[in-house]
Simulated scan of single mutants.
Amino acid sequence: MKKLIIAAAAVAWAIAIPAMAWDGFDWKTASGVEIQQGHLVCGGKFIEIYDLRTGQYHDVKVERIESTIRGAEVEVYDYTTNTYRTFEMED
């Protein structure tokens, strides 16, 4: 029975991992943002973010990423709004 519980927990964990996102905030637009797991966030990469304020996905290019005490600061160029945005991402 114990092995069955451990196996069920492992399967649930494996299913939940792809659904996780990296949460952050854009102070300029007062918008929460999510970067879905599986996106490689490094300079020059194109990724998709979800803007919680507008309820829309945005295609962005990562311009810069920098570690901070609380996580990371990610500067992107948002091709949906044609603007530069800076996100404060949680650790």
Rank of each mutant, 00 (worst) to 15 (best):
V62L: 09
H58R: 08
T29I: 04
T68F: 02
H39A: 15
D51Y: 01
Y50D: 00
V41M: 11
E66T: 11
K45F: 04
H39L: 05
D23I: 08
R70P: 00
A21V: 15
I35S: 00
Y77N: 08
Y50W: 04
L52C: 06
S31H: 06
Q36S: 14
K45E: 15
G38H: 06
I49F: 03
V62K: 08
I69L: 13
I69M: 13
Q56N: 09
A30L: 07
Q37Y: 07
V33K: 06
T54M: 02
W22G: 09
G71R: 01
L52K: 12
G44A: 02
E75T: 15
V76P: 12
S67V: 07
V41A: 09
G43Q: 13
E75Q: 15
I47K: 11
V33T: 04
G24D: 01
E63T: 08
R64M: 11
V74Y: 01
M20V: 13
T54A: 06
Y57P: 02
E48H: 02
A21C: 14
W27D: 06
R70W: 11
R64L: 12
A21S: 15
Y57F: 14
I35K: 01
S67D: 14
V76N: 11
T68Q: 02
D23H: 15
Q36I: 10
G55N: 05
W27C: 05
E73A: 09
I35Q: 00
R53D: 02
K61W: 01
V60T: 02
G38I: 05
E75H: 08
G55Q: 06
S31K: 12
C42F: 05
G38K: 13
F46T: 11
E63Q: 13
V62E: 09
G32S: 13
S67Y: 04
D59C: 04
E73N: 07
K45M: 12
Q36W: 09
W22E: 10
W27E: 14
Q56G: 00
G43L: 03
S67G: 07
G38W: 04
L52R: 12
